[in-house]
Design a protein around this nucleic acid. Structure first.
Lengths: 341, 341
DNA sequence: TATCATGATACAAACGTTTGCACATTGGGG
DNA sequence: CCCCAATGTGCAAACGTTTGTATCATGATA
């Protein structure tokens, strides 16, 4: 049987309320009593019952985590474990716990969020908002603070943490332009993803600024796994004279797929085609050639998100804010000077 | 402000206790009242306060999850997301939630488990017990049901879910023996992992039964990333006449590393060396050659573990049990007939 | 010596449920 | 017509905390 606050009170020879205050370092308690209470508590291995505590305080020390398409699915990409590491680090330090959205197969993201909120177990929510989803309307109903990682379209009155992906897309493109490339392809997964949209804006901004006109046909999505029609499209693009000499690719996995694909067309990276990539994964580091890539620092994304949420819960943040996490361009071997025209 | 049971009672014109019983389908409540209560509850979007509920029932609808070296770290390997998917599926169906062990960097596995148990938030624990760890002594103190995935050395009075890894090791080795191989190497990560130990036993059993004598020097561990000394060892083993013609490799990632490594030695898979692998990852499926591998069904492992734990919590399982999850040998292209001697 | 401010502690209500028990209503059997 | 079983409801205690307010010493002030 676990020790309760009453046991501590009895053994310390004080009242229950005194124990409570002593453990909370309330200044109204004398140093002497405070020490004694702490000693007894330790002796009994007393841990306050969180349920009772939460019942009166109307708060828990748990935050809900919502990964797109349920945690288990997204974990396939190294980005998410890294975010999780950041989240867990801060949560652990501040003695919070993390509740995973249990992703049943037949449960939409929005339903999963609602479920988390309704459960009553969490005091706040962290949403990995990779793509647009209809969770807007149901959040106000529960009065739960929400921090999003990756920012939603209309983000004025939301709390979120993100890279400046427009700037990142710009930087990547600029890096290629500076090396003489003029025919630059933009390769992403799907325009449903926020990152794709933002980085594309940066890409077009850089092109325009260099006096080039962004071509709609040169913005392509593919996954190199299922979708053979996309690959046919890519194949036609890379045939012939006016082919791209460089690619801005939204993810290392995509880039690695691309390298293999280009090889089948007789094109070598970076000799014939340069690639600048995103996400700095281990796979990209060991690929050949090793990928020049932009590290968006998912760990820091996680750290910042959890810090922001816990600060909100503590009442230290009032107005909707966002935190920008810096990215870093990592030079390796997948980009070369553009071949002479 | 959220609706409480009192609001429902008032609006339904009955007492609080009647509402409680009505919602729990207590037979003492008349059908008429039951329906009315349910209607009002739905109308108010009433969700019972879990804290209050847990306070009296001394139970929560949360189970704690403990991944080795903290969730975020282990997620790098596709095995764990798959397990998580299974766990989440069952938890979701049965309206349970999952609390992640928040892995601060400076927190041992044992401490993390203790933290979970002490938190008071969880009613049971699922431990991904990949390797030996000193969590034995602290579990009895808390009266928390624990289900382990992957079984510990002395497993008599524990609940766990696992493959029969001895049998799996035997089957893998047998598969090679049946194709004429006699010089078979066993390649693992580290003998600290339970799976390595068990499968090795199966491996040796198969060899012995075929009239061969297991060689201690032919049980090697490597990771092909950091550890160059292991690779030197492997290199010497694969030089010269009496080299292995086949390998039993504990993981697809290891096998893929091995294929590349052998290539540098001028040896081709499966022509010169056959490989049978474990874990049936996507990487192994797309590797060249595609890996012949044993699928240990991590999803089912997760499903079974969560089912077992929830059944224990429901009081439907009394005695320590274990569940064996079947594995499956998937034939692809990394194993060939042994070359003639 | 009586009064008061000060500091330390205790009392008791409240949080939202569940559940053992008491109570009220009904209809049937004696 | 009375009693009793059966059926349906309500009362109130309990779960383990937190916290506003009351109480109690103590020593200083008048």
């Amino acid at each position: 049987m676990k020790a309760t606050i009453k046991d501590v009170a009895r053994l310390a020879g004080v009242s229950v309320s005194t124990v409570s205050r002593a453990l909370h370092h309330n200044p109204r308690i004398s140093e002497e009593v405070r020490q004694k209470v702490h000693r007894v508590a330790k002796e009994l291995d007393f841990h306050p019952n969180q349920m009772a505590r939460s019942l009166v305080s109307r708060k828990t020390r748990i935050v809900g985590l919502m990964f797109p398409g349920s945690a288990a699915f997204s974990m396939g990409h190294p980005f998410y474990p890294a975010v999780l590491r950041g989240l867990g680090q801060v949560a652990g330090e501040r003695r919070y716990h993390m509740l995973l959205s249990t992703g049943s197969e037949n449960l939409s993201d929005a339903e999963a969020v609602r479920d988390l909120a309704d459960s009553g177990y969490v005091s706040g929510l962290i949403l990995l908002a990779a793509q647009d989803s209809p969770m807007e309307e149901l959040l106000p109903s529960q009065a739960l603070p929400v921090v999003e990682i990756g920012h939603p379209p209309q983000a004025e009155n939301r709390y979120y943490v993100d890279n400046d992906n427009v700037k990142a897309g710009y930087a990547a493109t600029q890096y290629l332009l500076a090396r003489g490339h003029r025919r630059i392809l933009f390769l992403g997964y799907s325009s449903r993803f926020f990152v794709t949209v933002d980085r594309r804006a940066g890409y077009e901004q850089a092109l325009t600024q260099a006096g080039l006109i962004p071509q709609k046909e040169w913005v392509v999505s593919s996954s190199f796994i299922e979708n053979t029609t996309d690959n046919a499209l890519l194949e036609s693009l890379f045939q012939g004279q006016g082919r791209p000499t460089a690619v801005v690719s939204m993810d290392d996995a995509l880039s690695i797929g691309l390298i293999g694909f280009l090889k089948t067309l007789g094109l070598a990276v970076p000799k014939d085609v340069s690639i600048i990539s995103f996400n700095n994964t281990q796979a990209g580091q060991f690929a050949s050639p090793a990928l020049t890539t932009i590290d968006v620092d998912p760990y820091l994304l996680g750290v910042s998100a959890m810090q922001l949420l816990l600060d909100i819960l503590k009442g230290r943040v009032q107005e909707p804010t966002h935190v920008e996490v810096p990215f870093q361009l990592i030079q390796r071997d997948s980009v070369a000077e553009a071949p002479l025209p």
